[in-house]
């Protein structure tokens, strides 16, 4: 298998898994436009074993999708020999480099801020009610931060491939 084919596979995976990840974020954004604190009564009433399995699968899917997106993105930059210039925002590679940095922030936000708090909100990890309410606010802000960050990210990703004249 030649590297050009691997590069194409990475691009394909990058798009598919980005849709899985960010699509999930957008669905949450549309479903919950405003913050509502965690409500034990309604949340625990609706909770069933089947729902728990579904939530685990859903959250695992987009969390691991983010890793595929990040690795394939970095892989494509490496294959082209652009990685160092992109990450140091050097010259024309600063455009895709800004996208790469925003994407990296989004992935770190998801894994290091959102997920540890979300586990408690969803009851995957036991926590007292007060803590779950506090975590629901942090989770909401972290999730919407990723929504906000995805807007410039997509701008730079598209511009890196098709709109470099915008920067000249």
């Amino acid at each position: 298998m030649d590297m050009a084919f691997v590069d194409h596979l990475m691009r394909w995976f990058h798009l598919i898994f980005a849709l899985v990840w960010v699509g999930h974020n957008y669905a949450s954004f549309v479903q919950h436009p405003r913050y509502k604190p965690f409500n034990e009564e309604t949340s625990e009433q609706a909770r069933t074993a089947a729902l728990e399995v579904r939530m685990q699968r859903e959250h695992g899917t987009f969390r691991y999708a983010s890793i595929v997106v990040w690795c394939s993105g970095m892989g494509m930059l490496w294959y082209r020999g652009w990685l160092a210039d992109a990450l140091t925002l050097n010259g024309a590679h600063a455009v895709i480099g800004m996208g790469a940095w925003i994407g990296t922030l989004m992935m770190l936000n998801l894994w290091l801020i959102m997920w540890p708090h979300q586990k408690k909100v969803l009851g995957f990890e036991p926590a007292p009610l007060e803590e779950r309410v506090r975590c629901s606010r942090i989770t909401f802000l972290a999730s919407r931060t990723n929504t906000i960050l995805s807007i410039p990210l997509l701008f730079f990703m598209a511009a890196g491939g098709h709109g470099l004249q915008l920067f000249m």
Binding site: P33, V95, M98, F140, L141, R144, I148, I151, L164, L166
Partner: peptide
């Protein structure tokens, strides 16, 4: 404290404003 995240419009506006600011930053680097 109310943050842009607290409304749909605020989220979209923050994303658009951030895009514009970062665009101007990156333009100086290219």
């Amino acid at each position: 404290m109310k943050l842009p995240h607290d409304s749909m419009q605020g989220t979209l506006l923050a994303g658009t404003a951030l895009t514009l600011v970062l665009y101007l930053v990156v333009r100086t680097l290219v």
